[in-house]
Simulated assay, not measured.
Amino acid sequence: MSAASTRFIHVIYIASTPQKVFEAITRPEIARRYWGHENVSDWKPGSRWQHVRANDTRSVELVGEVVESTPPSRLVITWAAASQADNPDSYSRVTFEIVPYQDMVRLTV
């Protein structure tokens, strides 16, 4: 990642459980329903992950590494376009924080 950075913080409240939200991010068959892509990895720190188009092309669109995985409350990954995977400066970092909030879940990305 480059020295200069921009931060975006998005918060959404979801009528669900932390486990189901975590699985919606990490389980390919569930992510496919929301994003039209599958997030594929074993989700262990240091492992690679891929964002794979869930159609006939099965093209890999994003790649990265799992930095931290604490199911069902936190996932930290790096990502870059597959075409830029060889350039360390092209990677961004994203953190998913999943916290129970009243009768729902607060997802902070």
Rank of each mutant, 00 (worst) to 15 (best):
M104E: 14
R48E: 04
R48F: 04
H10K: 14
T95N: 09
P88N: 05
A81P: 05
I9C: 11
G64A: 10
Y34L: 09
S5N: 14
V105R: 00
E65V: 14
I12A: 09
E38M: 11
A3Q: 15
P72G: 13
F22S: 08
A81H: 12
I98V: 05
Q19N: 14
L62P: 05
I12C: 04
V11Y: 03
N39Y: 03
V40T: 06
R32N: 00
L107G: 02
G46L: 03
V76A: 10
Q84S: 14
A54N: 10
D103H: 13
T108I: 09
V67C: 04
E68A: 09
E29H: 05
S92H: 12
V52G: 03
A82G: 05
S16M: 08
Y13K: 08
T17K: 10
T108G: 09
Q102L: 10
S59V: 11
Y13D: 13
G36F: 01
D103S: 13
S16W: 05
L75T: 04
V52H: 00
S83W: 09
S73N: 15
V52M: 03
P88K: 10
D56S: 15
N55I: 06
R32D: 06
T57K: 11
T108H: 09
P45L: 05
I25C: 02
S83Y: 11
I98K: 10
S16D: 14
R7M: 12
T17N: 10
A81I: 07
P88A: 04
H10D: 14
A24S: 15
P45F: 01
G36L: 03
P72I: 04
E65F: 06
L62Y: 12
T57W: 10
P72S: 13
E68V: 08
W43N: 01
P45V: 00
V67W: 06
R7P: 01
I9W: 00
V60N: 03
R93T: 15
V67P: 05
Q19S: 14
T70G: 06
P72T: 10
R7F: 08
A85H: 09
